[in-house]
Structure formats: structure tokens, C-alpha cells
Design a binder for these strands. Structure first.
Lengths: 212, 212
DNA sequence: CCAAAAAATGAATGAGTATTCATTCATATT
DNA sequence: AATATGAATGAATACTCATTCATTTTTTGG
């Protein structure tokens, strides 16, 4: 009864417990930062005991790796879904991907803080890079081929799909940073405007000015 | 005699010693990450003893704050210099600022790693934000007014200087992240191409296609 | 050259933290 | 009801690290 509503059990399946601990880790990193998150914090956040992290993850390091992997997987699910649910045109899909990154559930200051916490350690912990590598390559490939498709439809001489894809990815990451840092003066709506202005500028035929 | 150059003395002025320790801190963060940098590491890097950090900075926290402040100051110096040395036109100045961010001495993986290390902790340590706030406001203001000036020179109906400035700032930060993360496949030259493509797209009259 | 001040040292301290493991306890099985 | 299983506990352990401070080294000013 003392535990969560859904299960009255005090023992959960291994998968459930692991997920619960990963969720707690994300919360702790968002609140306290990666550097100040201790295994004790995570266990307390989950309402469990000291040793639970090592029981389920062997080490704190491993917990952090698995947490990053989970975040990457979670994002990929949304990414795939966004494309599936979008219109059939390449421009529909590209716009859907951009809107995805600025959706409240993803462009959320807590979640962004966690991503940047990992990125902030990526040089000294190459494992973090390895975990995200395959995902990033996939996103780049999808974005690039959508841009190439739009360019192939004509009207954009001299525009490189690769360069546009790089700009879109980097711009999105930079706008996330702006949302993270400039909490009071910048938000995801302004960020979406920036993206739309860029799309209109680079692919005017596919992204005409939006009347407000 | 006491304050000159390399000095034969084994004790340095307070300012010299502080700077030496800040330099060591930057190196350690670049190599080991913010989370794994200890006061002992910094002292060893500087070739000095254990207690030296507390002697000169009172606390590790204070050392980190001062290190961030130094980085921010150092960047501002370059920023001001880049504008001074550029051509007289607003477009010259804007291009100079963009080139500044992708200059080898600034778009250096070690230095970028340090910036992202601090940004990765910014939500849980608001002091980091406070230290950079005034600088960032100044850069935004300068960039925005340069864009406004270019727009005022005519030919860009419906373009917002504020939005372009935000895109440029965010794009630069995102490109830094790309340089940090994708060490093998991305570099500052590709980043500069992205910036130039964007400038050409948004302000074609001021930034015509560059023949290579 | 000497005494006082300042700078630097580095061993000692103690707070904090990841990890271990003997034990408890809920549940499933017989 | 008795037994087995393995999830969970939490006190104990081993270790790291920021900070302190008594002592040594160096500089300064008379």
C-alpha cells in the first residue's frame, strides 16, 4: 500500500524496477545536475533502498549509460512516429520533424537539461558518444534525404541537402540551448518561428510565409 | 622587477597565480570533464600543492565560477577585437563575428568541451547563468543591431533582425556541439560553410555566393 | 643581514559516496 | 503448512575529495 498505486507488490519485475530507476535518474539529473546526482539520491527518488542501484545496474556508471540509451530510444520512437503521422510530402515530413523537437514534451527544460548534462561530459566519456552514434547517423540520413527530395522537386539551384540538414540539426540543438539558458526571455514558440523563417528562406516554394 | 615575465621567483603575484590556476582548471575540465575534475588535479596540473586552490580561491566552487568568468571575459575581448578589425560595413562586421566563432583558437574541441561542461550544469547551478548573462545580452544586442542595419539597407521585406540574430547565435552554438560530438566527421570548415550558406540565403545582396 | 610578512606546502581531517553483503521478507511452489 | 526463490534492505566498508592548518620557504622592508 505504501508503494505506488498501480502495483501493491513490493517486488516488481526486473524490467519494471530498472525503468523506475532510470526515470528517477532522469529526474535527479534534471533537478541536481549530473555532477551532483548520487546513487543515494536516485534510490530515494524511487522510494527504494541504498543498494538498489548496484543490484539492478551493477554500477552507477552503467546506470548513467543505460539512462542515456533510454533517452535516445525514447526520442527515436517519437521521431519515427512523427514521420508516420505526417503528411505524405517530403516537406510535410521535414516540418513534422522540426515541430517534434519543439513539442512541449520534448522541448522541456528538464529534459533538455539532461541532454546537455550528457553532452557536457561527452569529450571525457566517449561511451556517451558511442551510445548516441547510431541514432544520430540515422536522423542525419533521414533529414538529409528529405532535403534532397525537396531540392530534387526543383527550384533550388545550388542548395546542398547535406548542408541544409546540418543547419537544421545544429539550429535545433542551439535553440534548445537557448530555451535551457534563457528561461525568462526565450521559449519554444520563438524557437519554432526561427525554424519556420529558415525553412521559408531556404525552401520558399515548399514553405511559404505563414499568415498569422 | 618583481612582476616581470617568466620570473625567477618561486612565488608569483596573486594575480599571476590565480590565472595559472584558472588555466589549469580549463585544461583539467577539457581532459577529465567538470564532474571528474578535483582540486588535486588542478593543483597537480599547475605543479603546485594540494591546498593552493583554497589559498587563492577560498573554495572549489569559487574557482569554477572564476574560471567561467575568465572564459566569458576572454571571449568578449576577441569579440570586440573582431569588430574593430573588420571592415566598416554592417555585413563585414557580421561576417567577422561569425568567422570569430569558427576560428581555430575558439572553435577548438577542448575549449568547446569546457563551455558545454558549464552549460550542462546551468539549470542546477543558476550562478553559471548569472555570470554569462550580461555578456550574452551584449552579444545579442550587437548581432541584432547589425542585422537590423543590413535589413534597413533594403531588399529584405518581412525579415526580422531579432529572428536572424537568434538563428545565428543558436546555429553557431549548435555547430559547436557538432564539432564537439562528431569529431571524426565534422569540422569548423564545414561549419563555416553552413553559416555562409545561411547568410547568403537570408541576406543574398550582402552575402553573395562565394566562388571557391 | 635580520625580522616580520606573505606565500606555499602537504599531512591530517572529516564529510560524503559507491559498493558490498549478510539478512529480511514477500511471493511462488510443492 | 513448509520450503524455495530472488527481490530488497541498510548497515558496514573502502575510498575519494575538499578543506584546514601547523610548518616551511621565500620575499620584503628597514
Amino acid at each position: 500500500m505504501a508503494t505506488t498505486a498501480k502495483n501493491s507488490k513490493r517486488t516488481a519485475t526486473r524490467a519494471t524496477r530498472r525503468q523506475q530507476l532510470i526515470d528517477s535518474t532522469v529526474k535527479c539529473i534534471a533537478r541536481k545536475g549530473l555532477g551532483s546526482t548520487t546513487t543515494g539520491d536516485v534510490a530515494r527518488e524511487a522510494g527504494l533502498s541504498q543498494g538498489i542501484i548496484n543490484l539492478h545496474f551493477k554500477s552507477k556508471n552503467n546506470l548513467l549509460n543505460e539512462t542515456l540509451r533510454y533517452l535516445a530510444d525514447e526520442y527515436k520512437t517519437q521521431f519515427t512516429l512523427a514521420i508516420e503521422r505526417s503528411g505524405p510530402l517530403a516537406s510535410d515530413k521535414l516540418r513534422a520533424l522540426m515541430a517534434l523537437d519543439l513539442r512541449p514534451s520534448i522541448c522541456d527544460r528538464n529534459k533538455i537539461a539532461v541532454w546537455f548534462a550528457f553532452w557536457g561530459e561527452v569529450k571525457s566519456r566517449p561511451r556517451y558518444r558511442e551510445i548516441c552514434e547510431k541514432y544520430d547517423e540515422y536522423y542525419d540520413e533521414v533529414t538529409r534525404s528529405l532535403c534532397d527530395e525537396i531540392i530534387a522537386e526543383g527550384g533550388y539551384p545550388g542548395v546542398s541537402g547535406t548542408a541544409v540538414a546540418t543547419v537544421l540539426t545544429s539550429l535545433t540543438n542551439g535553440l534548445w540551448l537557448a530555451c535551457l539558458v534563457n528561461e525568462k526571455t526565450f521559449d519554444r514558440k520563438q524557437a519554432m518561428n526561427c525554424i519556420d523563417e529558415y525553412l521559408n528562406c531556404i525552401f520558399p516554394k515548399h514553405f511559404p510565409v505563414r499568415i498569422l
